[in-house]
Design a protein around this nucleic acid. Structure first.
Length: 264
DNA sequence: ACATTGACCTGAGAGC
DNA sequence: TGCTCTCAGGTCAATG
Protein backbone atom coordinates (compact mmCIF):
# COMPACT_ATOMS: atom_id res chain seq x y z
CA UNK A 1 0.00 0.00 0.00
CA UNK A 2 2.25 2.79 1.13
CA UNK A 3 3.71 4.37 -1.95
CA UNK A 4 3.33 8.05 -2.76
CA UNK A 5 -0.44 8.06 -3.43
CA UNK A 6 -1.18 6.05 -0.29
CA UNK A 7 0.97 8.29 1.87
CA UNK A 8 -0.68 11.36 0.37
CA UNK A 9 -4.07 9.91 1.30
CA UNK A 10 -2.79 9.28 4.85
CA UNK A 11 -1.60 12.88 4.95
CA UNK A 12 -4.99 14.22 3.94
CA UNK A 13 -6.62 11.94 6.53
CA UNK A 14 -4.33 13.30 9.26
CA UNK A 15 -5.12 16.83 8.18
CA UNK A 16 -8.81 16.18 8.44
CA UNK A 17 -8.78 14.25 11.71
CA UNK A 18 -5.72 14.65 13.86
CA UNK A 19 -4.54 18.27 13.83
CA UNK A 20 -4.82 20.72 16.73
CA UNK A 21 -5.78 18.31 19.49
CA UNK A 22 -3.61 18.47 22.60
CA UNK A 23 -1.65 15.24 23.05
CA UNK A 24 -2.01 13.79 26.54
CA UNK A 25 0.07 10.65 26.06
CA UNK A 26 2.26 8.70 23.68
CA UNK A 27 2.62 4.93 23.84
CA UNK A 28 5.32 3.08 21.92
CA UNK A 29 4.72 -0.66 21.82
CA UNK A 30 7.54 -1.59 19.41
CA UNK A 31 10.63 0.37 20.23
CA UNK A 32 12.53 -1.03 17.26
CA UNK A 33 10.56 1.18 14.87
CA UNK A 34 12.01 4.31 16.42
CA UNK A 35 14.78 5.93 14.45
CA UNK A 36 17.46 7.88 16.33
CA UNK A 37 15.19 8.58 19.29
CA UNK A 38 14.22 6.70 22.45
CA UNK A 39 10.63 6.18 23.54
CA UNK A 40 11.26 8.26 26.61
CA UNK A 41 12.69 11.17 24.66
CA UNK A 42 9.87 11.01 22.15
CA UNK A 43 7.27 11.04 24.92
CA UNK A 44 8.79 13.97 26.72
CA UNK A 45 9.09 16.02 23.55
CA UNK A 46 5.63 15.24 22.16
CA UNK A 47 3.32 15.08 25.17
CA UNK A 48 1.57 18.35 25.76
CA UNK A 49 2.00 19.43 22.16
CA UNK A 50 -0.37 19.25 19.18
CA UNK A 51 -0.04 18.12 15.58
CA UNK A 52 0.14 21.42 13.75
CA UNK A 53 0.53 20.68 10.04
CA UNK A 54 1.57 17.95 7.64
CA UNK A 55 3.72 17.57 4.57
CA UNK A 56 4.99 14.71 2.48
CA UNK A 57 8.12 13.85 0.55
CA UNK A 58 7.99 10.66 -1.47
CA UNK A 59 6.82 7.91 0.88
CA UNK A 60 7.59 9.90 4.04
CA UNK A 61 4.93 11.75 5.99
CA UNK A 62 5.98 14.69 8.16
CA UNK A 63 3.82 15.94 11.00
CA UNK A 64 4.96 19.22 12.41
CA UNK A 65 4.35 19.80 16.10
CA UNK A 66 2.97 23.06 17.34
CA UNK A 67 5.92 24.21 19.44
CA UNK A 68 8.96 22.49 18.10
CA UNK A 69 9.94 19.33 16.27
CA UNK A 70 8.47 17.23 13.54
CA UNK A 71 7.42 13.59 13.53
CA UNK A 72 8.44 11.47 10.55
CA UNK A 73 6.26 8.51 9.60
CA UNK A 74 7.47 5.84 7.24
CA UNK A 75 5.13 2.98 6.50
CA UNK A 76 7.31 0.17 5.20
CA UNK A 77 5.30 -2.39 3.27
CA UNK A 78 2.24 -2.63 5.47
CA UNK A 79 1.84 0.61 7.40
CA UNK A 80 -1.29 2.71 7.91
CA UNK A 81 -2.56 5.32 10.33
CA UNK A 82 -5.89 5.21 12.10
CA UNK A 83 -7.74 7.82 14.12
CA UNK A 84 -10.03 6.13 16.59
CA UNK A 85 -12.05 6.73 19.70
CA UNK A 86 -11.81 4.93 22.99
CA UNK A 87 -9.47 2.55 24.72
CA UNK A 88 -9.17 -0.47 22.53
CA UNK A 89 -6.24 0.05 20.23
CA UNK A 90 -6.32 -1.46 16.75
CA UNK A 91 -4.28 -4.57 16.04
CA UNK A 92 -0.64 -3.97 15.10
CA UNK A 93 -0.52 -0.54 16.70
CA UNK A 94 3.16 0.26 17.23
CA UNK A 95 2.85 3.89 18.27
CA UNK A 96 -0.27 5.55 19.67
CA UNK A 97 -0.84 9.26 20.26
CA UNK A 98 -3.66 9.87 22.71
CA UNK A 99 -5.44 13.21 22.46
CA UNK A 100 -7.34 15.00 25.21
CA UNK A 101 -10.56 14.75 23.17
CA UNK A 102 -10.82 10.99 23.76
CA UNK A 103 -9.53 10.07 20.32
CA UNK A 104 -6.16 8.61 19.41
CA UNK A 105 -4.00 8.24 16.37
CA UNK A 106 -2.20 4.93 15.85
CA UNK A 107 0.60 3.98 13.52
CA UNK A 108 -0.23 0.44 12.45
CA UNK A 109 2.53 -1.80 11.12
CA UNK A 110 1.81 -5.45 10.59
CA UNK A 111 5.44 -6.09 9.69
CA UNK A 112 7.74 -3.88 11.70
CA UNK A 113 9.41 -2.45 8.65
CA UNK A 114 8.16 1.09 9.18
CA UNK A 115 9.88 3.89 11.04
CA UNK A 116 8.98 6.71 13.35
CA UNK A 117 11.43 9.55 13.88
CA UNK A 118 11.46 12.96 15.53
CA UNK A 119 13.48 15.65 13.81
CA UNK A 120 13.98 19.39 13.91
CA UNK A 121 14.77 19.95 10.26
CA UNK A 122 12.78 18.20 7.53
CA UNK A 123 15.04 19.17 4.67
CA UNK A 124 18.03 17.83 6.57
CA UNK A 125 16.22 14.53 7.06
CA UNK A 126 15.44 14.34 3.34
CA UNK A 127 19.06 15.08 2.52
CA UNK A 128 20.48 12.58 5.00
CA UNK A 129 18.24 9.85 3.65
CA UNK A 130 19.38 10.62 0.14
CA UNK A 131 15.89 11.19 -1.21
CA UNK A 132 15.56 12.64 -4.68
CA UNK A 133 12.85 15.12 -5.61
CA UNK A 134 9.28 14.11 -4.92
CA UNK A 135 7.83 12.33 -7.95
CA UNK A 136 4.69 14.46 -8.00
CA UNK A 137 5.58 17.91 -6.71
CA UNK A 138 7.08 20.64 -8.82
CA UNK A 139 10.72 20.28 -7.84
CA UNK A 140 11.26 17.56 -10.41
CA UNK A 141 11.54 19.13 -13.86
CA UNK A 142 11.20 17.35 -17.16
CA UNK A 143 14.86 17.95 -17.97
CA UNK A 144 15.88 16.85 -14.49
CA UNK A 145 13.96 13.63 -15.05
CA UNK A 146 15.76 12.98 -18.33
CA UNK A 147 19.10 13.60 -16.64
CA UNK A 148 18.16 11.17 -13.86
CA UNK A 149 17.31 8.42 -16.34
CA UNK A 150 20.47 8.99 -18.34
CA UNK A 151 22.56 8.77 -15.16
CA UNK A 152 21.75 5.12 -14.49
CA UNK A 153 22.46 1.80 -16.16
CA UNK A 154 19.59 0.03 -14.48
CA UNK A 155 16.26 -1.04 -15.88
CA UNK A 156 13.48 1.50 -16.04
CA UNK A 157 11.55 -0.25 -13.27
CA UNK A 158 14.56 -0.08 -10.92
CA UNK A 159 15.16 3.53 -11.87
CA UNK A 160 11.57 4.54 -11.10
CA UNK A 161 11.81 2.76 -7.75
CA UNK A 162 15.16 4.33 -6.90
CA UNK A 163 14.31 6.84 -4.17
CA UNK A 164 17.53 8.74 -4.78
CA UNK A 165 16.50 9.54 -8.36
CA UNK A 166 12.92 10.42 -7.57
CA UNK A 167 11.04 9.75 -4.35
CA UNK A 168 7.70 8.06 -3.93
CA UNK A 169 7.33 5.28 -6.49
CA UNK A 170 7.44 1.61 -5.46
CA UNK A 171 6.82 -1.67 -7.18
CA UNK A 172 3.06 -1.36 -7.64
CA UNK A 173 2.98 2.14 -9.07
CA UNK A 174 6.05 1.60 -11.23
CA UNK A 175 4.12 -1.26 -12.83
CA UNK A 176 1.10 0.99 -13.35
CA UNK A 177 3.17 3.82 -14.81
CA UNK A 178 5.05 1.53 -17.21
CA UNK A 179 1.81 -0.13 -18.23
CA UNK A 180 0.16 3.21 -19.01
CA UNK A 181 3.27 4.36 -20.87
CA UNK A 182 3.45 1.03 -22.77
CA UNK A 183 7.06 0.48 -21.74
CA UNK A 184 8.64 -2.80 -20.73
CA UNK A 185 9.98 -2.77 -17.13
CA UNK A 186 13.27 -4.38 -18.21
CA UNK A 187 14.03 -1.68 -20.76
CA UNK A 188 17.24 0.22 -20.03
CA UNK A 189 16.30 3.58 -18.52
CA UNK A 190 19.09 5.51 -20.21
CA UNK A 191 18.29 4.30 -23.73
CA UNK A 192 14.95 6.00 -24.24
CA UNK A 193 14.64 8.98 -26.59
CA UNK A 194 13.87 12.42 -25.19
CA UNK A 195 10.33 12.07 -26.49
CA UNK A 196 9.75 8.79 -24.67
CA UNK A 197 11.26 10.17 -21.46
CA UNK A 198 9.02 13.23 -21.66
CA UNK A 199 5.97 11.11 -22.24
CA UNK A 200 6.94 8.90 -19.28
CA UNK A 201 7.42 12.00 -17.13
CA UNK A 202 3.87 13.06 -17.89
CA UNK A 203 2.56 9.53 -17.28
CA UNK A 204 4.14 9.52 -13.82
CA UNK A 205 2.30 12.69 -12.88
CA UNK A 206 -0.99 11.49 -14.38
CA UNK A 207 -0.92 8.06 -12.74
CA UNK A 208 0.05 9.36 -9.30
CA UNK A 209 -2.51 12.17 -9.38
CA UNK A 210 -5.27 9.89 -10.63
CA UNK A 211 -4.46 7.39 -7.88
CA UNK A 212 -4.66 10.13 -5.25
CA UNK A 213 -7.96 11.32 -6.68
CA UNK A 214 -9.19 7.74 -6.32
CA UNK A 215 -8.21 7.77 -2.66
CA UNK A 216 -5.49 5.23 -3.55
CA UNK A 217 -8.31 2.68 -3.53
CA UNK A 218 -8.07 0.13 -6.36
CA UNK A 219 -11.84 -0.18 -6.49
CA UNK A 220 -12.20 3.51 -7.28
CA UNK A 221 -9.49 3.65 -9.91
CA UNK A 222 -10.42 4.17 -13.57
CA UNK A 223 -11.14 1.18 -15.77
CA UNK A 224 -7.93 1.49 -17.75
CA UNK A 225 -5.78 1.06 -14.63
CA UNK A 226 -3.86 -2.18 -14.21
CA UNK A 227 -3.77 -2.18 -10.39
CA UNK A 228 -7.33 -3.47 -9.82
CA UNK A 229 -6.90 -6.22 -12.41
CA UNK A 230 -3.30 -7.38 -12.16
CA UNK A 231 -4.37 -11.00 -11.98
CA UNK A 232 -6.79 -10.70 -14.90
CA UNK A 233 -6.52 -9.35 -18.43
CA UNK A 234 -5.26 -6.19 -20.09
CA UNK A 235 -7.90 -3.43 -20.15
CA UNK A 236 -6.62 -2.33 -23.57
CA UNK A 237 -6.08 -5.53 -25.57
CA UNK A 238 -7.51 -8.33 -23.45
CA UNK A 239 -4.29 -10.36 -23.26
CA UNK A 240 -3.69 -12.07 -19.93
CA UNK A 241 -1.44 -10.11 -17.63
CA UNK A 242 1.88 -11.80 -17.01
CA UNK A 243 3.89 -11.84 -13.79
CA UNK A 244 7.64 -11.58 -14.28
CA UNK A 245 10.66 -10.81 -12.10
CA UNK A 246 12.51 -7.56 -12.63
CA UNK A 247 15.58 -7.11 -10.45
CA UNK A 248 14.14 -9.44 -7.87
CA UNK A 249 10.67 -7.88 -7.60
CA UNK A 250 7.46 -9.20 -9.07
CA UNK A 251 6.18 -7.14 -11.96
CA UNK A 252 2.88 -7.32 -13.76
CA UNK A 253 2.88 -6.52 -17.47
CA UNK A 254 0.79 -6.88 -20.58
CA UNK A 255 3.09 -8.88 -22.86
CA UNK A 256 1.41 -7.43 -25.93
CA UNK A 257 1.11 -3.72 -25.05
CA UNK A 258 4.48 -3.37 -23.30
CA UNK A 259 6.90 -4.39 -26.04
CA UNK A 260 8.99 -1.20 -26.06
CA UNK A 261 12.46 -1.95 -24.79
CA UNK A 262 11.73 -5.60 -24.07
CA UNK A 263 14.64 -7.96 -24.37
CA UNK A 264 13.75 -10.96 -26.46
C1' DA B 1 31.28 3.14 -8.05
C1' DC B 2 27.33 1.19 -9.25
C1' DA B 3 23.67 -2.34 -9.67
C1' DT B 4 21.61 -6.39 -7.84
C1' DT B 5 20.63 -9.75 -4.16
C1' DG B 6 19.42 -11.22 0.39
C1' DA B 7 17.98 -10.24 5.00
C1' DC B 8 14.90 -8.03 7.89
C1' DC B 9 9.65 -8.85 10.09
C1' DT B 10 5.05 -10.88 10.17
C1' DG B 11 0.94 -12.99 8.37
C1' DA B 12 -1.91 -14.79 4.52
C1' DG B 13 -2.64 -18.20 1.33
C1' DA B 14 -1.25 -22.29 -1.33
C1' DG B 15 -0.05 -26.97 -1.43
C1' DC B 16 0.42 -31.29 0.76
C1' DT C 1 -6.97 -29.59 10.33
C1' DG C 2 -2.29 -28.59 10.57
C1' DC C 3 2.12 -28.14 8.87
C1' DT C 4 5.49 -26.01 5.69
C1' DC C 5 6.65 -23.09 2.11
C1' DT C 6 6.40 -18.88 -0.54
C1' DC C 7 5.38 -14.39 -1.10
C1' DA C 8 4.07 -9.39 -0.05
C1' DG C 9 3.30 -2.72 -1.84
C1' DG C 10 10.21 -1.08 1.40
C1' DT C 11 14.88 -0.40 2.62
C1' DC C 12 19.57 -1.27 3.60
C1' DA C 13 23.86 -3.97 4.04
C1' DA C 14 26.45 -7.19 1.64
C1' DT C 15 27.96 -8.90 -2.67
C1' DG C 16 29.42 -9.05 -7.49
Amino acid sequence: MPELPDVEVFRQYMDKKALHHPIRGVVITAEEILEAVTAQELRSRVEGQEFHSTSRHGKHLFVKLRQQGCLVFHFGMTGRVRYFRGRKTPQNSRAIFHFTNGYSLALLLQRKLGKLALVDDVSLYVEEHNLGPDALEGRLSQSGFRAALRSTRSTIKSALMNQALLAGIGSIYSDEILFQARLHPKAKASEFSDEVMDRLFQTIKDVLQTAIDSGADPEKMPGHFLIPQREASCPFCGSSIKKIKVSGRSSYICPRCQMTGSVS
